[in-house]
Amino acid sequence: MSNIAFQRLQREFKEVITNAEIAQTGIRLDTSDDTLTKLKGEIKGPPDSPYEGGTFKLDIIIPDNYPFHPPKVSFETKIWHPNISSQTGTICLDILKDQWAASLTLRTVLLSVQSLLAAPEPSDPQDAVVAKQCLTHPQMFTETARLWAQVCADAPGERNSQLYKKLTQLMDMGVGKESALSALSCNSWDVSKATEHLFS
């Protein structure tokens, strides 16, 4: 890692850790090794969104020529969102690609990801299945996204009993929690289709 990158990251860490205002926005930053190349981020699901109150963990990889190249950021916590891959956690966000600027920081990145949760852009999708559902069945999208946040990100609130029942049904067959969620969500909560999808 270059000197500039190391200096910058030290500064950014100090900013996120010491600034009370930043802590209030529900943003956290942690190291996962000594080299500062692999970091862990955390954001709270924004209010008035299906993700409200959830705690979402992010993997952050710092490239050698940071801050001239953007950090690679992806969701470690599973999430149902049109601009985030429900399979891999990859985020489609312009500032993480060609709109990156050296003046942007990990704090601004995490804030942008947080506001992406509040305002999905299904017309520029990362996950086509989610985006299609978001556009054609907005109600089902909201319910699905909320349940994912409750099951995977500890979001509070009463779970949609209808959907949760279907989920437990699959889990009782021995299917993992996340696979079951994914199979049901991708098949419009049709249990038989989801089962077929899982076992074929």
Binding site: S2, I4, N65, F68, H69, A102
Partner: peptide, 14 residues
């Protein structure tokens, strides 16, 4: 100046 040199060098290589 140091950051400018690093920034412009990186942009050039990319």
């Amino acid at each position: 100046l140091d950051c400018f040199v690093a920034y412009a060098g990186c942009c050039l290589e990319d």
